[in-house]
Write a protein that binds this DNA or RNA. Sequence first.
DNA 1: TAAAAAATTTAGACTAATCTAAAAAAATAA
DNA 2: TTATTTTTTTAGATTAGTCTAAATTTTTTA
Lengths: 216, 216
Amino acid sequence: MNTLAEENYLKAIYHLTENDGNASTNQIASSLNTKASSVTDMLKKLADKALINYTPYQGVNLTPSGEKIALGIIRKHRLWEYFLVEKLNFKWDQVHDLAEEMEHISSEELIDRLDQFMGYPTHDPHGDPIPDCNGRFNTHELKPISAVTINQCGVISGVRNHSSSFLQYLDKQQLTIGCKIMITDIIEYDHSVVVQTGNKEVQISREVANNLLIAL
Amino acid sequence: MNTLAEENYLKAIYHLTENDGNASTNQIASSLNTKASSVTDMLKKLADKALINYTPYQGVNLTPSGEKIALGIIRKHRLWEYFLVEKLNFKWDQVHDLAEEMEHISSEELIDRLDQFMGYPTHDPHGDPIPDCNGRFNTHELKPISAVTINQCGVISGVRNHSSSFLQYLDKQQLTIGCKIMITDIIEYDHSVVVQTGNKEVQISREVANNLLIAL
DNA sequence: TAAAAAATTTAGACTAATCTAAAAAAATAA
DNA sequence: TTATTTTTTTAGATTAGTCTAAATTTTTTA
Ligand SMILES: [Mn+2]
Ligand SMILES: [Mn+2]
Ligand SMILES: [Mn+2]
Ligand SMILES: [Mn+2]
């Protein structure tokens, strides 16, 4: 159906256009660790297949059929991550690269049965929503901790950075998905945030607060 | 490490040389649905990597490191088949093509954890032995039903043909892996075999008897 | 608004894997 | 043991995906 490279491009374009409108050639190149000239070639191919809207020099976005394919890949990625953590006992910082490979297993029936086997989970180990077999998912409003005021409570529900080192740091601070927390202080000098989690208090940098999302 | 094509060639060579000594260029081409000239190119590449012993015009066999890789692929193939049948409720005739894709997921740790998750199964849904993480497996002696004499008992333990149509036929006749059977008659005229299975008797052709293996 | 800088595309080349057609070697038959 | 057939290899081409370097377009700056 589509090659591995095509699928990776569609997924990258999906993520780059999730918020704003168009993805640029350079943005795509950097997110796929490739060169702009390679991207241009692929954009032509995807445009020929009517999976993206492409005007030279103007960047691209997905057509409905391109988005459908991208959501299918993201669904597979997140379901496999859930499987790896919940069934095979991997840690949340170990599964992303494995899922990058597994998301290209083509069978729809396989992924739908895997979904059923795991009880139709709605979120992956990093708090990201898992699209259902029709590509639908509920997009709850999450805020970075850095945007929350003192004395507000919330539940840790997502991360903006998926690197191993960040996830391992959060593990160590016991700041993991599902934890109830309260913001007890914000240091004016450097915008660090003091957070109450369970019985203890931890202080996190502005950088960390920017990348840790809570549901209020 | 190795490309998908290289892995498929190594696996094909492994299976072709399981019994006899060398695999010929044409045998490999036909088992991979490709052309002899493509095979020759790949044989040179695998020989350069010291994964096969190749003398032009003389066919090939695996070196120890080539065999190790082949056994790793076969281990993954059979473990995924077991997973698909035992955990995701696929039928034994539906899993081979899926496993052909899944066997190329590269992580060793993933497959070892999957093995553990399933309780270290020793045989796949078709009765084929699953190599352990060191590539070792016990090779029990199986006989085709066509080689058994009247009144002998045994347990159905393997198949020589893995096609969907054959496996579906066996399902319908309730001749599946693990069934205890007895050979009650052999028709002299066409070598059909009459088999007692559970409470009923079924008659199978010589062709079927050739491809259905039992442990005595 | 013209010059400089940045972004993007084009041109031309490379690798892995495949193919067809032709040449060469090995096996078989007369 | 020579001729024919079969098998295998070589030669040359193709496609997907990538790259570097050069050309072109767009954006920014002065
Ligand atoms: Mn991920
Ligand atoms: Mn994730
Ligand atoms: Mn199989
Ligand atoms: Mn099998």
